[in-house]
Write a protein that binds this DNA or RNA. Structure first.
Lengths: 203, 203, 203, 203
DNA sequence: CATGAATGAGAATTCATTCAT
DNA sequence: AATGAATGAATTCTCATTCAT
């Protein structure tokens, strides 16, 4: 019975994923999902209290991954600024994101492009805001350590670059690329960012 | 009578703008707009043949501005690459965009974030694609003029930076900023881009 | 001024005729008519109190013709049965109808096929009912004159043949025919009817 | 549950039948039907995907009967002309139609008089056209068998008589008659047709 | 746990008619 | 007399959610 239940839940989540990816949150109807899952409409509500909740559950893996990553990086607040500027460090960081993306293309597409109308419609914005806050704290910390660093970078600039990273993810998503291609892009991206920031920070 | 008509049309367009900005295209109902404009529902259709058309008319100023700018820049294809790399040229270019933005904050918000479900839902994507095409042509032209330039930048990278520019606009939009702040950001942005591209192109 | 008014009225009636013929009573909107007449919507109501009234006025020529014919034939009640059975008499009668048809093809089409939803939607039925009543009176009269005539023809049969005549008109209308073709058909029709009725009445 | 479903479907079809018969396709609203069936408006769409489809389902019995009959008569193409001229053969044929009519008075009324605006609005015309085609084929066949038969009857005349038969059905419909009355009428009708055609064909 | 029928509000759009100008 | 903007009710159809079975 428990097994059966889990199976059904998975089938619902899967069907929902397909439909949300195809038509977006608003245009997807519970009926479509039920049909896709081979399940009665009413039964959906035995597993998920509402359409919005179902949507959140579908996207749980990706949102969780983002939050997990966020927490992990929270603990790197102690990392030294100059160390962070190394290509290696950055590359490994970004590749971490890329792995998330690559394992969850569909979910990310939904989260970034098809969430309008749901409670997750502002996820990207909220997340970047949070991330920016974190970076601002990190910057303040660095100021103490390296007084010579030009820390007068606007908060906005920090925010913008966070968003840009996401934008890059989006573009990678939308232009179905091979892993090799992705690696090359990441490299170009990192180069670009490193050069720019080093200049701005006058390191 | 003529005055009255124009007045009502403006009131409808205004109400529509407010509602579309608040709730997005899909979730905004003609009833809401009518109520907002202090007008009967049916009367909306004396001015605009459909919801989608009304939406397009609301956004006409901003879409027209984008297309006009696109056409103007089309004629700069002859511009030399090295000239374009000057801070001055770039700054003036970007400020052009910024002026558009600044005069049409709400409209841009709608166009970029709230157009899902309308015929303009792909405007940003289509526009960046077009812009990318243009830049690719420009790159090819530059290859002839400056054979020493490293032209092996992926199309994707070109595309990405076009999108980034838009992203910056979006962010400027969302963080209601003063003109001075905007100027500083543009400066940082230009610096960043110039440095990065000079490096990539090995100029 | 009076001239102008008449001109406008004619233009409205004409435009209405076109539209009613094209789309039928229900599907034709007052706006369409106004546009067709080159007149403001509101002005229609200065000439005709309602859509239904306008419809009636458009069809007035044809309905009037039918009623006029009806009245004329009312006075033929004195005509002798055996005289009426002659080809000549019948032919001339039917040709009378044909002339009406031919001069008013469009109006008849409207009256017969496009009146649903209007107060004239039952015109044909009402008219045939009245005509049948008249013929029944005529039959009763004949019984006195020619006791040997088999008068036991059902009222229904009388009704049916009235309807058939109309049906023939409809078919002639729908198969745009030349006058010669029409004449041939009428001849065949009369032959058919004469033969049949002579047999039924055992004349 | 299954019983309930069938019951409701019947109630909807019945209510729809009543309303369509009363007001015709266009003027009947889904709300009226829902109210008549004691059902919510939305629920109609659980049974029928559209108003037009509901209309078609309501009329399915009668349209199916017509097509079935058409197919059956298609196989009588081999029947000899002179045989067909016998009263018995014709009577049995027409009675076949009459039986259909008698069991479906309301439906035929709807199909013939109240279908405007629906996808069945041309049913009668289409059907008579098809039937006429069939008869023309039959005529051509007879010409070979009985060269002395005067086959120069206009196509129009053939068409007209097909329509007339339908017209008779319509009239029978509209004048609620007993079966005995109907039989008498059919007899008169057949007599009329036989006499007339024999004369026209110079048999 | 499962069904899908049922609900009822809400969507966009149409249209005859009125009325201020 | 003429305009056409304005109204508001009516149209078909959709859909998240509930509930009897």
């Amino acid at each position: 019975m428990q097994v059966l239940k889990d199976d059904i839940k998975k089938r619902i989540l899967n069907a929902a994923k397909q439909e949300f990816a195809k038509r977006g949150f608003i245009k997807t109807s519970m009926r479509d999902i039920a049909k896709g899952a081979g399940v009665g409409v009413g039964n959906l509500y035995n597993y998920f209290p509402s359409k919005d909740n179902l949507f959140n559950e579908v996207l749980a893996p990706i949102t969780a991954a983002f939050y997990a990553m966020f927490d992990r990086h929270h603990s790197t607040n102690g990392t030294d600024a100059l160390e962070m500027m190394t290509q290696d460090y950055l590359t490994s960081s970004v590749l971490e994101y890329v792995n998330i993306i690559n394992g969850n293309r569909t979910l990310m597409k939904i989260l970034f492009f098809n969430a309008q109308g749901s409670s997750l419609e502002n996820f990207k914005m909220d997340f970047t805001d949070k991330a920016t806050e974190q970076v601002k704290v990190w910057f303040a910390d660095q100021k103490k350590r390296h007084p010579h660093i030009n820390i007068n970078v606007s908060n906005f600039m920090v925010h913008l670059h966070t968003v840009w990273m996401f934008t890059m993810f989006e573009e990678i998503l939308m232009h179905k690329m091979t892993l090799t291609e992705i690696r090359q892009i990441i490299e170009e991206y990192i180069t670009f960012e490193t050069i720019g920031w080093k200049y701005l920070l006058q390191v």
